[in-house]
Computed example of a mutant assay.
Amino acid sequence: MLFETTMLFIYRFIALAVAAMMVWNMVRNKDWQQQVFSVMIFIPFILRAVGVK
């Protein structure tokens, strides 16, 4: 059980890290089309980080 819990936290941490990088890229980018694309890609990562499949 400890192994599964640890792996779950690692997985969620990685998903949050990737989501944070996407948000940083979205804020840094000035092109609105790239920002919309970043939001579309960002949504599944944030849902995975909070545990919604």
Rank of each mutant, 00 (worst) to 15 (best):
V27Q: 11
Q34V: 03
I41H: 00
Q35R: 15
M40F: 04
T6V: 15
V52L: 10
F42G: 01
G51C: 10
Q33G: 08
P44N: 05
Q33A: 06
L8F: 03
A17S: 07
A17V: 14
D31F: 10
F3I: 15
V18R: 08
L16V: 09
G51I: 11
W24F: 14
A15H: 11
G51K: 13
N29F: 11
F9T: 14
M40N: 12
M26T: 12
I46N: 07
P44Y: 10
V50N: 09
L8S: 03
N29L: 10
V18F: 11
R48T: 06
Q34W: 12
F9H: 15
I10P: 07
K53E: 04
T6W: 13
T6Q: 01
L2A: 11
F3S: 12
Q35P: 07
V27K: 13
P44V: 02
N25V: 03
V18Q: 02
F9N: 15
F45S: 00
F42T: 08
R12W: 05
Y11G: 05
R28M: 09
F45T: 05
K30C: 06
K53P: 10
E4F: 10
A19I: 06
M40H: 05
Y11I: 08
G51L: 06
V23L: 06
F37R: 05
V36R: 11
F3V: 14
W32F: 12
I14F: 12
F42E: 01
V50P: 07
M21R: 13
F45R: 04
R48N: 08
M1Q: 13
L47M: 14
F9Y: 12
V27E: 04
T5M: 08
V52Q: 00
I10W: 15
R12F: 07
A49E: 08
M1Y: 13
V36P: 03
V52S: 04
M40D: 09
Q33R: 15
L8K: 15
W24G: 04
I10H: 02
L2S: 05
R28S: 05
Q33I: 14
K30Q: 06
I41Q: 10
L47C: 04
S38I: 02
D31I: 12
N29H: 12
V52P: 01
M40W: 11
T6K: 02
V52Y: 04
L16H: 09
F42K: 00
I41P: 00
Q35E: 06
Q34S: 04
A49V: 07
E4A: 15
L47S: 13
I46V: 03
T5I: 14
